[in-house]
Nucleic acid binder design. Sequence first.
DNA 1: CGGGGAGTTGATGTCACTCAATTGGGGTGG
DNA 2: CCACCCCAATTGAGTGACATCAACTCCCCG
Lengths: 237, 237
Amino acid sequence: MRKEDTGAGHNPHHHSHSHKSCVSLVPIFNHLEEEQMNEITKTIHSINYKKSETVYHAGEQSDSLFIVNKGKIRVYRLSESGKEQLVRILMPGDFTGELALFTETTYVSFAEAMVETSVCRIKRTDFQNLLLQYPTISLKVLTEFSKRLAQSEKQSMRFATEKVETRIALFLAECFDSENQTDTIELPMSKKDLASYLGTTPETISRKFTELEAQGLIEQKTHKLIKVLDLDGLLLN
Amino acid sequence: MRKEDTGAGHNPHHHSHSHKSCVSLVPIFNHLEEEQMNEITKTIHSINYKKSETVYHAGEQSDSLFIVNKGKIRVYRLSESGKEQLVRILMPGDFTGELALFTETTYVSFAEAMVETSVCRIKRTDFQNLLLQYPTISLKVLTEFSKRLAQSEKQSMRFATEKVETRIALFLAECFDSENQTDTIELPMSKKDLASYLGTTPETISRKFTELEAQGLIEQKTHKLIKVLDLDGLLLN
DNA sequence: CGGGGAGTTGATGTCACTCAATTGGGGTGG
DNA sequence: CCACCCCAATTGAGTGACATCAACTCCCCG
């Protein structure tokens, strides 16, 4: 456990001067001056994970923020009754562990590398010092927090008020919006994970996709590739 | 609309020197020095609302943070398909409008006074200046954000993975925890609102309460007062 | 005292989960 | 490079949880 503390098995082969590229990749910091960057660079550690390795797990003592540099991380939770829910998938530039920094003393979710992944790790105290020293970073982080909060509340409301079919349609519509060059979207996760993310089962996902296809709203090119034929039709449901 | 801009109908009878009590009530600020307090006091406006008056509504141009000074505010949303969900109830010291400050330019939720209510209003630019000037406030706000995020993600996960009965039981358990002097809890809202908050219907709430009572887990003293007879029983469900 | 909304109770319908069997596809080792 | 294997994905049948609709009661407040 907590392999990242020792670095064992993760090839933490970065040397401190090679952190720079990591820091500059992070949206939270990318408005800063060279000199400030260098200071920050001193406080972070770069860690690599192989596919399906654990970044952290619920219950573990938490004292760090993780920022994805390269790769993908799957963040999920276990509910009171033991069922798993996919919370989000982190792409480069995204961060996790933020609750750890301010409220909780242990992680409440699980994070696992989906592919070969490299992250920057910043300790709680170092990060808090950065915030006090560079107030503009706080604004960036606050902005990021508020985005995430908005996202979470939206998701929450959909669970509370929309049926599965609508949640799926809304999800597809959002994927469509972010892939603004083409009408074919690539699902960012397996249908199993999608089911977990949308609070349903793989069976239901499968059936609803077939229904949407029968209605002429989408076309399933492959398991991962979906062509959207009628966006409005999806939404006015 | 936007009555708070003019103050019409809200008796904004506070004078600037009387804001102080308002500011000192706000957890975000209550670690500051007298002098800093006074500076903040200049930037805020106090507004009163009568029962069921609108504080803001979705779609309205947003440029302010609202902090509850006295009273209760009901925050709710309308989903894509037009159904209402109760997001939270603000008590003194709580704030809302935060998304407005960082991400959205319009409010996404509705806020309405449940009783005679008094709030402090801070404009976006003033608030951002405060954050840059007093980095410790940022930490407070970040902490508050992360709490709310944790709460929202927890709620979201419960919608995704737990059935109605469990969500009710968990809600009761949390009420129980916060009223740590007695085994009788007072529901913080009507059962209608509770249904909306928990993503179900008043009918189901009613039935489940009866079931829980039949199982000997709770006792309904009145519509608002619930005596918890077997907390563990509630939770291990 | 009367009105109206909150709360309750019953009957019915349906959406989506569960369980089970089968197919499909991607990755690994021989 | 191919075959196998495993897990994802699909499809079907049955069930159950919860929403809906409707009728009624209970308070709370004017």
